[in-house]
Computed example of a mutant assay.
Amino acid sequence: MAHTLIARQPILDARLRVFAYEILYREPGSPDRAPRETADAASFSVLVDLFTSVDLERFLGGHRAFFNLTRTALLRLAEHPVGVGRLVVEVLESVPADEEVQTAIRHLRREGLEVALDDFHLGGGHRDLVPLADYIKVDIRALDPGELAEHVQALREAPAWLVAEKVETREEWERCSELGFALFQGYFFARPETTRHHRIPTNRAQVLRLVARLQDPQVGLEELAELVSQDAALSYRLLRLINSAYAPAGEKVGTIQGAAALLGVEGLRAWSTWLALALLDDTPGELRVVTLARARMCAMLAPEVGMAEEQGFLVGLLSTLDALMDTSMDRALAPLPLVGAVREALVHRAGPGGRLLEAAEAHERGDWALLERRGWDPERLAQAYVAATAWAEELKATV
């Protein structure tokens, strides 16, 4: 799977739990420069590579994978099904609903795969495919409120789950939920709500004070361990983390002092910060997984921009602090005594840390063109992203 870039975007249920991931990818050779026949072949080969070269159980965390295919790749998949029980084939709006395509869809479903109609529109050419679909995705930004309600009403009797695409705010999520959508896709879970007052609620203020103390460079290992020990929930989670991911085989770490000795100052500081933020239990769980994977990816890539791995991890770790705290990044960081390079990266996206964040966020949303312009090595990014995401999925239950 050399030089293939992949990312994943969550599809959430009404309780903001991950239901599936849409796989975003770029084929070798870049589809905008390749002949159509090459792109068709590449689309299918990338799918096969994903199921044979990537540990999808770890990468997807046990969830379904939605995957866009061209018409030719769709027909080839029907001849040689892969990903049975895990794959949801997305039929693009550009794929004609001819008899050959319908026959392929029926065969895929008989083989145990599921089918989604992407960017469905009542005025498009996919109405004949509605009875064959398991999911119907509707771009809410392509329709005004009246048209959106009309689409939901028309699809109410369809034997498929309705998926609202490009949901960017909690208000949109709530409106789509009221209309009858069952699943939601977009970055609304990672955005802070707009509020009239910016005062941080008491429980969050307590967490932020703890995070600030953890960041104080004057606090040594012994004092850090004592600070963590004063919070029962934080101590519990840290010990779970240590014993599941760090402790040598056959050994158990039963004290915070033992965890401190194993992690060292920077390790204890970074992980305690993350676990403290994870105590904000009213934030979507997927945001925490995204944050953890981003921190790991930034740490892995940090040497390539001349930054220490510990600082790269911290940059990624705090990059969603505004969403976690429901305020601006400036206000969220104000109490934290961060070193200049970390603060510049988080507030202004400047310096080496800013370059790391730009790369990680671009990869998450599949902005391959930007990554190329910035000179990132595609294969290196793909390896780091897959490894970081799988690692975060493994730790999800712990943190």
Rank of each mutant, 00 (worst) to 15 (best):
Q9H: 10
R17S: 11
V18G: 00
Y21W: 10
E22L: 02
P28Q: 08
E37P: 00
E37F: 10
E37Y: 10
A42I: 01
S45F: 04
V48F: 07
V54A: 06
E57N: 11
F67V: 06
L74T: 15
P81R: 13
P81E: 14
R86L: 12
R86H: 08
L87F: 08
V91S: 14
S94D: 09
L117P: 07
G124E: 09
L132A: 08
I136F: 07
V138P: 04
R141D: 15
L148H: 02
Q153A: 15
E168P: 10
E171Y: 04
E172G: 01
L183H: 02
P192G: 03
T194R: 13
T194Q: 14
R199F: 06
I200Q: 08
I200A: 06
T202S: 06
V211H: 00
A212N: 00
R213E: 15
A225W: 05
A225T: 14
D231H: 06
L234D: 02
R240F: 04
A247T: 14
A249R: 14
E251S: 13
V265H: 12
R269G: 05
W271S: 11
T273Y: 02
A276T: 12
T283S: 05
R296W: 05
R296E: 15
M297A: 15
F313S: 02
T320P: 00
A323C: 06
L324H: 12
S328K: 03
A332F: 06
P335Q: 05
L336W: 03
P337N: 03
L338M: 00
G340E: 15
A345F: 03
G351E: 12
P352A: 15
L357W: 03
A359G: 09
E361P: 00
A362H: 10
A362T: 12
A369N: 12
R374L: 14
E379C: 04
R380V: 13
Q383E: 13
A387V: 11
A388S: 15
A390F: 00
K396E: 05
